[in-house]
């Protein structure tokens, strides 16, 4: 195929212990390390492997946000993507708006495959890939742990609650990836230098004429209810007694 589109979202790094702001307006992001959403990194790795097997010619990474998201796109280019597009938007888009932006780019780029993370680790929505597939009127294969391309279709193994489900989808299609699909490569210094010369186009979101859809308003953030530390027992007899005491055995 000619082209694979991959989404890279800039999110709070997964190692950061997230804290809710005292005024409940969001979570602390000042001075916090930001990274590519880990699932998106896996999506890009898979796209690069497909290209390296000779099954695709170009991998284009896309992000939506402010100019700071260029950082994550550059990392994607250093990993091996050929080209980057930043859709510049001051407002944080909800999944439907993001899906509509991707649909506009799919049309522009004539992409045959879009590979995305199954969810972003900030909003944990797990919606965008499915929404893109819906408005594109194309197949979706979510939670992928194995992807085999053959001609105009793909066989995708999906991690579902009951086990591993395999679906066959015609291309073009949207695939969202799960953790066990692959292990993303590390970026080496020479690749970072090379990535600086790769094209990164900045596209104002207004140019795409996308309607973000009806908003779901964020009213307030709060820390989760915490569990309290319980009792310690000394041995199995103490454990059995404590379980009996709670009426659990």
């Amino acid at each position: 195929m000619e082209k694979i589109l991959v989404g890279l979202k800039r999110v709070v790094d997964y190692n950061v212990r997230v804290r809710v702001k005292s005024d409940g307006s969001g979570v602390e992001t000042d001075g916090v390390k930001m990274s590519i959403n880990p699932f998106d990194e896996i999506a890009l790795e898979e796209a690069l492997r497909i290209k390296e097997r000779g099954e695709a010619n170009e991998v284009v990474v896309v992000s939506i946000g402010g100019s700071e998201a260029q950082q994550q796109l550059r990392t994607g280019l250093a990993m091996g993507a050929d080209r980057a597009i930043l859709v510049e938007s001051g407002d944080l888009l909800e999944p439907l708006g993001v899906a509509r932006v991707f649909k506009a780019l799919v049309d522009r780029e004539q992409a045959e495959l879009v590979i995305l993370g199954k969810q972003a680790i900030d909003g944990d929505n797990n919606q965008m890939g499915q929404m893109l597939a819906a408005i594109w009127d194309r197949p979706q294969a979510t939670f992928a742990s194995k992807i085999e391309l053959s001609g105009n279709s793909a066989k995708v193994t999906r991690e579902v609650d009951a086990g591993l489900e395999t679906n066959e989808v015609d291309l073009p299609a949207v695939i969202t990836v799960d953790l066990r699909l692959n292990e993303p490569r590390y970026v080496k210094l020479p690749d970072i230098m090379k990535a600086k010369k790769k094209p990164l186009d900045v596209l104002p979101i207004a140019d795409l004429g996308v309607d973000a859809g009806p908003a779901i308003r964020e009213v307030s953030y709060e820390p989760p209810a915490s569990r309290e530390r319980g009792i310690m027992v000394d041995d199995v007899a103490g454990l059995v007694a404590a379980l009996k005491d709670k009426g659990l055995i």
Binding site: L96, D124, N125, N126, Q127, M131, A134, I135, T142, F143
Partner: peptide, 23 residues
Amino acid sequence: STTFGKDLMPRVAALLGVNQISD
């Protein structure tokens, strides 16, 4: 919000032109 619902509901929401509330 099992893998079944997570797979299906956003597709429904997008066809209806709305965002979805997850979880």
